[in-house]
């Protein structure tokens, strides 16, 4: 893992050993679960992937997007609102593009996770910006 940001900032990645307290964990977990569920449907039966054409591909792209959003959310909680909107949009897109949003399960997870992320408040550190 590359840690290129300045060492001490509220948005820096949590160093090894530090807990993820103060990070939007539930939202990230919901978004990751949505991605996993969407990816499971085509990946659970890999032999049928190419046969099934655009459905599987778009499922995987949306699942990958959701996983990225959840990772960004954990490591850059200041971006929670953008992540929330992105997660929600991906969830909505999964309906026509990814097996009905993983039979609605992944879609609902993504929408709720996105809403949770959107609602995350990450105040500036005391004293404001230096």
């Amino acid at each position: 893992m590359r840690v290129t940001s300045p060492p001490v900032r509220a948005t820096s990645p949590p160093a090894a050993g530090r807990t993820l307290r103060g990070r939007p964990l539930p939202a990230a977990a919901l978004l990751a679960a949505a991605g996993a569920e969407l990816a499971y449907l085509p990946l659970g039966r890999p032999t049928l992937l190419a046969l099934q054409g655009p459905g599987a591909t778009s499922s995987l792209m949306i699942a990958g997007g959701l996983l990225c959003v959840s990772v960004v959310l954990l490591y850059r909680p200041r971006r929670a609102r953008v992540c929330g909107v992105a997660g929600m949009l991906l969830g909505l897109l999964s309906c026509p593009l990814a097996n009905f949003g993983g039979f609605l399960v992944g879609m609902l997870l993504a929408v709720l996770g996105g809403a949770l992320a959107f609602a995350w408040r990450h105040p500036a550190p005391a004293g404001g910006t230096p």
Binding site: P24, A115, L116, F118, A119, W120, A124
Partner: peptide, 19 residues
């Protein structure tokens, strides 16, 4: 206000409903 990070539940209700 300087406070702990956390979820704004009113905003969650709004965003969740819209979503």
């Amino acid at each position: 206000r300087t406070e702990k990070p956390g979820t704004d539940w009113r905003r969650f209700a709004l965003a969740g409903t819209v979503g």
